[in-house]
């Protein structure tokens, strides 16, 4: 067998069609994950009783176990719970009507939530306490101080981390093959096995991921430069 350069291009074009699937999994998990992350981070920072302990346990569990186990647990466990409840309460809804990609959305959002929780927390902690005090000293209410002073600065501080999490979820979306979702990786596998050209197909997939990653990195750097303009030349 010899490296077939032209097939890399063929595979590349065939795999392109799977990009929207990969991006939708990434986008959903990042957005929902950010919401989960924000809530759990605030609960932990402000030591909300019960919620903060639950949040800590959630973050510890997710960060201590592989993303694949989250997906498999949701895939096998969720239907069991749903169908059990449905049988008990006489619902007509059955787990079989959940599309495969739905399991990926749910599971990856839960995974992302734990990592986002750490990102949000680190971002908020990075803002100097004096900033909130100064906001209060000029007569702002706490919500005003949070919205106008704390959050914008926390976002700027969290951005590099946020970008890494997005890249982590982009790469993590390759696990969707385990629940038969045809993302870039699964498509590469299909192209590879139907043509018996594995190396070429995965090379094409790698190039697509590489490109997407560089794109995310560049955009993040660009945004950072714009919203972080006030930080230029500072120590922070």
């Amino acid at each position: 067998m010899q490296l077939d350069i032209s097939f890399i291009w063929t595979a590349f074009r065939q795999i392109l069609g799977a990009i929207p699937t990969t991006l939708s999994i990434t986008a959903v998990s990042v957005l929902v994950g950010f919401l989960i992350g924000a809530v759990t981070a605030l609960a932990r920072l402000y030591r909300v009783p019960v919620l903060s302990q639950v949040s800590s346990a959630y973050v510890t569990f997710i960060r201590g176990t592989p993303m694949l186990t989250h997906l498999l647990l949701i895939y096998f466990g969720l239907p069991m719970i749903i169908d059990g409840l449905a049988g008990h309460f006489g619902w007509s809804f059955r787990s079989a009507s959940i599309p495969m990609i739905g399991f990926a959305y749910i599971s990856f959002s839960i995974t992302a939530g734990a990592y986002m929780s750490e990102v949000v927390r680190a971002g908020l902690l990075a803002v100097d306490k004096g900033q909130t005090e100064a906001a209060h000293s000029v007569g702002m209410t706490t919500p005003q101080a949070l919205r106008r002073i704390l959050f914008p600065q926390a976002l700027a501080a969290a951005l590099p981390n946020l970008s890494n999490s997005v890249i982590g979820m982009l790469h993590g979306s390759t696990l969707a093959f385990a629940v038969s979702v045809v993302d870039i990786n699964a498509k590469a596998q299909i192209v590879a096995s139907t043509n018996w050209k594995f190396f070429e197909a995965y090379l094409a997939a790698a190039l697509i991921f590489w490109g997407l990653t560089v794109l995310i990195e560049r955009s993040s750097a660009w945004i950072e430069k714009r919203i972080g303009a006030y930080n230029r030349g500072g120590v922070a």
């Binding site: 590099p160 946020l162 890494n164 790469h171």
Partner: peptide, 23 residues
């Protein structure tokens, strides 16, 4: 100031290596 130190360390570690998500 930071509450549970362990996870803050980990968060910092993410910042430093860029291994943000992790599978």
């Amino acid at each position: 100031a930071l509450g549970k130190r362990g996870s803050y360390r980990a968060a910092l570690a993410d910042i430093e290596t860029g291994k943000g998500g992790g599978i």
